[in-house]
Amino acid sequence: MENKNSNASSRRNFIKKIASGSLITVSGLTIYSVSSCEKSTEGEKATLLTPDGKLVQVLKSEIESFEQLPASPKESRKGIPGKKFVMVVDLAKCKNARKCVKHCDKHHNLTPDRPYIKVLEMKDNEKSAPYWMPKKCFQCDNPPCVKVCPVGATFKRTDGIVLIDNERCIGCRFCMAACPYSARIFNWATPPNVDENLSYSPETSIPSKIGTVGKCDFCPDMIRKDKLPHCITACPNGVLYFGDEIDDTVTNGEETLRLSTLLREKAGYRYLEELGTKPRVYYLPPVDRLFPFNKENAKKGAS
């Protein structure tokens, strides 16, 4: 349940850890580290939502043993019950730190030239100021890629996520042509450093296979463990919010907000709404920026 702790308590842990850490380093004496408030998980219960929408208490040790294997391709098609996942990207906070890209690449075994996430330098017109736009798959509710797939290798789940089954994909690349957001990448060659021992699941997207399509998948393997996708937790500036539309709640790992309030107060919009693709990723306009637009960040992040 550690991940469910409030932001305030995690900040406190952080302060404590800093204090104890500096003690050790400065004095050179190991007095003893201040014990953190983490309790042993044994016997602890977790509240889970069952497929029929009921809350049940389950022993946490049971969940963990259940977590070991990623979902099978058949199971992956169903989606997590009772959920509709959304993402909110606050453009005012992004300074192109590229941590989301890095972590995503690492967890999906991607090379830097073909990332799932792209941080684009945008400039809407000559007069307006440039801004950074982190872009991933929009997980559209009217997904053009799913419509055109001849074999159902890419599909829309009940929780709103669009996934790809690399074991079904025939590599026709029609979905890539159909996606107006260029969200998809192709395994033109055998992906490097493939761990053959991993059992493939559309939910983990690894090991990805030659001649098939890949894209951002909202990390359903993490979501299944009640954890946030890698990019959300990686962002140092709290740009990316993730949550459940049914819950009406999104979080960037630090603060938790109501989705409807956030979108209303900050004039949230969806990119290219006029195409009718109904994306599940919302953007908050780049107003009252936290950082000045600086191209240097990109170079630092890339190195």
Partner: peptide
Amino acid sequence: LYFFVKRTFSLLP
């Protein structure tokens, strides 16, 4: 005091 509602990934204040 801090008041929260339990949500999927975190606690909503």
